[in-house]
Every structure is written in C-alpha cells, then in structure tokens.
Amino acid sequence: MPWTAINSLFDPFFPKGLQWYWKGDFVKALPDEAIDVHIANALEAPSSFCLMHLYPIDGAVQRVARDVTPWSARDASFSMVIAAISPDPKDAEALKTWGPCLLGGHPLNLEGAYVSFMDADEAGNRVELSYGEIYKPCLDQGEVGSEQPVPGQPEH
C-alpha cells in the first residue's frame, strides 16, 4: 500500500476544516495520580474531538546509550501525544490553553518531546532535553524549527 494511502486512512474520522493544536511529551511512568490528572483534564476539553494518546517506548530504545544517537530520552516509557481539536474556529484559543495543561501534569513527565510537537518558542530547551549534546550543533546553527523533523527521522 502506498504511504499516501496509509496516511489517508484516518481522513474520514477527521474531516477538513478542523482546528488542530498538537503537543507532546515523553513520560517515564503512569502512576495513579498521573492518570487522575489526565482524566480531570479530559473532562475540561474544549470539544469532544480532543484527545491524548500514548505510544510505548521500550525494547531496543532502552538498550542504546543516551550519547550514541541524536535522541537521548532513553528513560522514557511513553511518548504522549495531545491533540486539541475542534470544528469551530472560535475554539482556537481554548485549544491552545487546554493542550499544554496536560504537559507537566505529573512529576514523571520528562519535559521533552519529538520536535514536530514543539512550538518555535519552546524548541530550544525541549530539543536539548530530548536530543542531548549530539543535536546541539543544529540548535546553535538555527537549523531546528518547530516544523522540522529530527535528522534521520521520517517526516510526518
């Protein structure tokens, strides 16, 4: 199946015209308190389209040293993706406020994320936390922006 076909499989669930605000975080663990924070925030979502999902990070990822590749968040157990979504453009500000509320919701968030889930104003510190010293020359040369993928990673 061509990549474009795979990438369009979710199109019927998310029609054109929706307002989107994405955030992400790496998470070390999910204790009961963290789950309670996420449930409370879900109840405050600006629309029924808003969501948070987790992708496990395990196996070979933890067996590689932090300084071997440009990704240093080797102690992360999950990649958390927050998508604040609404069909109403009037919800744009509420979406921008709700998404970041889930970040830092518990002390086991690692303050890093994939570059594609960062705003330009937060990229510097969070990129360094996520990608360490190997990636620092790209930051110093201004080669990293919120819309750029990590070198060697596929674009979304």
Rank of each mutant, 00 (worst) to 15 (best):
N109T: 13
D88L: 01
S48D: 11
A94S: 12
N109E: 10
V37I: 10
L54M: 13
W71P: 00
Y55W: 07
Q62Y: 11
F49N: 06
A60H: 06
L95A: 01
A83C: 10
A120N: 15
L103P: 13
S47N: 01
A73Y: 12
L102Y: 00
V68K: 11
C101I: 03
E111P: 01
N125F: 12
Y55S: 12
P56D: 07
P87R: 09
C101T: 15
F78M: 11
S77W: 06
D119M: 04
H106N: 12
Q62C: 07
P87H: 09
A92R: 10
P56G: 10
E44Y: 02
S86A: 03
S116L: 14
A123G: 03
A42S: 13
T97E: 14
Y55C: 08
Y131L: 04
P46M: 11
S77R: 15
G124H: 12
I57A: 10
A92S: 09
G124W: 13
L110Q: 13
Q62W: 14
P107E: 15
I134P: 00
Y55V: 13
R126A: 07
H38R: 05
Y114A: 07
E111C: 05
D58Y: 10
N125I: 06
K136S: 06
Q62L: 06
Q62K: 15
R66S: 10
G124N: 13
L43I: 02
L51D: 06
P137H: 08
E111K: 10
K136T: 09
R63K: 14
E93P: 00
D67F: 01
A76Q: 04
L129K: 12
R74S: 09
E111R: 11
F117G: 05
A92W: 00
M118W: 06
D121K: 13
D121A: 11
R74N: 08
Y135Q: 05
R66P: 03
T69P: 00
E128N: 08
N41V: 02
R126I: 12
V61H: 14
L54G: 07
V61D: 09
G99W: 04
L129M: 07
G112C: 11
L103K: 08
V127P: 04
H38T: 05
P87C: 09
P89G: 04
A120R: 08
S130C: 12
A76W: 05
L95S: 00
A45N: 02
L103G: 12
M52V: 14
Y131Q: 02
D88F: 04
C101W: 02
E93G: 06
R74P: 03
M118N: 11
P89F: 03
M80E: 13
A60D: 14
A113S: 15
H38F: 15
A65V: 03
D75L: 04
C101P: 00
A42K: 05
A40Y: 05
K90P: 01
H38W: 15
S116D: 13
E44C: 08
S130D: 08
S116M: 12
L54V: 02
A83L: 10
S130W: 08
W71M: 08
R66C: 05
V127H: 12
S86M: 04
V115Y: 04
A45W: 01
E93I: 09
D58R: 11
S47R: 02
V64W: 01
N109Y: 02
V61R: 10
M52G: 01
G132I: 07
